[in-house]
Amino acid sequence: MSVLIDEHTQILCQGITGSVGTFHTQQGLDYGSKIVAGVTPGKGGSTHLDLPVYNTVSEVMQNHEIDATVIYVPAAFAADAILEAVEVEIPLIVCITEGIPVQDMIPVSDILKTSSSLLIGPNCPGIITPDQCKIGIMPGSIHKAGNVGIVSRSGTLTYVAVDQTCDHGQSTCIGIGGDPIHGLDFIECLTMFEHDRATEVIVLVGEIGGTAEEEAAEFIQTAVNKPIVSYIAGASAPPGKRMGHAGAIISGGKGTAEDKYKALENAGVHTVRTLAGISEAVNKILT
């Protein structure tokens, strides 16, 4: 068992012929991921890395069974690409692209509410179930199949969390991305890990800003029984330079690392104050 993806997941790559798309598709194929087709508008009918390339996602759906799509399309066109995948209700959409204008993501988030598609990202490393399927830009080699589920807002911090849990290995790792408006949040991921038989411990890596960790803490109190280890990055960050008051009014002064730690601790989460503490905390729970 695992979360969202496994060895049978058939994957489409949008933006497959670009340099980033090419590189990471090759890495994914080498890892054993079942990438079956690509889309690049204008290059339909050709092949790339021995895979068929189509002009539109809808053409792909007429010819292949697709469970997930990964998007490497440049920022200016990425929201368009996500919406094209939502249109045909691809179950899982993973958007790696960073730098998407935030107002482009507002309609995406509205439309996702009425769709069965799930979005991971944007601006994220993707998702991996070690030894089965890798969708995204994470280095496959550092992962090992095991029983720790990882969910994180930051890319490289996810990798460090993987490294910290190398004694036990990982069930699935999900990088949900750090953009203000993104798809899957902690709560959805925690729900899936809670129901996943392969996952025994969950590692939640948060960051200052927003209130996603506080909401997760509230959810954990009633809905998660598995042990959770959590680290929040940014305790030492000075208050960001800002102009105007609107941000402070809307957040009501919430969103500091200390608020998040407090909320998580109240929910029974094992919090650690430095990254280096993750390994010890996980080992303690699993022995």
Partner: peptide
Amino acid sequence: GLAMATMDL
């Protein structure tokens, strides 16, 4: 994220 975590450390 890692840059923030390094500052924390």
